[in-house]
């Protein structure tokens, strides 16, 4: 328990909070990596997922990609890109995007597919174009699952960003590896607690967002 108090003391120390190597700067970096990585992945995965979900084409490929991603060791990808592209942010960022893609793709196509077929056929019968069916029926109905995909992707990137400090990226992982090298367990613990806190806050926030995004008509049935 002493270590826990030491870790909290480490976090509370003003000398560790301010400046370009301080907790706030590293927390901002960590959050920034996660937001940028997930947004970049969304640019590709959401349109692709909408297409797969709406047309049903390429479904096998999307499912395969999602299960292959589970087997891919993230540390392997991070060190591979670190060695190929050198110290810096390009390698880790490619890893973040690559690891965020499968969950967002899976969440998007699953959401579109899960839209009640009766509602979709009804929309077609009412004269909606395919584009209207997608944007006014399938997308709103699938929104909770789409956000669920973004939620897992975000958590995946938060975890990977911690590892990326091993190959020279910033973020909260910096403190963890600095503590490891200098045998400073309270610092490692402090960094870990900060990452855990960030992940839990993000998870809860996305959970609330998912609830808000559920269309009113679906809420009563849950």
């Amino acid at each position: 328990m002493n270590y826990l108090l030491d870790a909290f003391a480490w976090i509370a120390d003003p000398a560790h909070q301010a400046g370009p190597n301080g907790i706030w700067a590293r927390l901002g970096e960590h959050l920034g990596y996660s937001v940028v990585g997930v947004l970049l992945a969304c640019l590709v995965a959401v349109p692709a997922g909408l297409w797969v979900g709406h047309t049903g084409r390429g479904r096998g490929l999307a499912v395969g990609l999602a299960s292959a991603a589970r087997a891919l060791p993230t540390l392997g990808l991070v060190t591979l890109l670190g060695l190929l592209l050198g110290i810096g942010l390009v390698g880790p960022m490619i890893a973040f995007v690559a690891l965020a893609l499968p969950s967002i793709l899976a969440g998007t196509y699953a959401g579109v597919e899960a839209a009640d077929r009766v509602a979709v056929d009804g929309a077609r019968a009412a004269g909606m174009t395919e584009w209207q069916v997608l944007t006014r029926v399938e997308l709103p109905l699938g929104m909770p699952l789409l956000i669920g995909g973004i939620r897992s992707a975000f958590l995946q990137v938060v975890a990977t960003a911690t590892l990326a400090a091993y190959v020279g990226a910033g973020g909260l992982g910096r403190f963890l590896f600095l503590g490891l090298r200098t045998q400073d367990y309270p610092q490692m613990l402090a960094a870990s607690l900060l990452v855990v806190g960030l992940a839990l806050v993000a998870d809860i926030a996305f959970g609330l967002l998912q609830r808000f995004a559920t269309p009113a008509g679906l809420r009563t049935t849950r």
Partner: peptide, 18 residues
Amino acid sequence: AGLLYAIPSLPLFVVLPL
């Protein structure tokens, strides 16, 4: 179970000894 799964692995490895 859901919250546990949200915790990244490396920080969990570091916190567990405590």
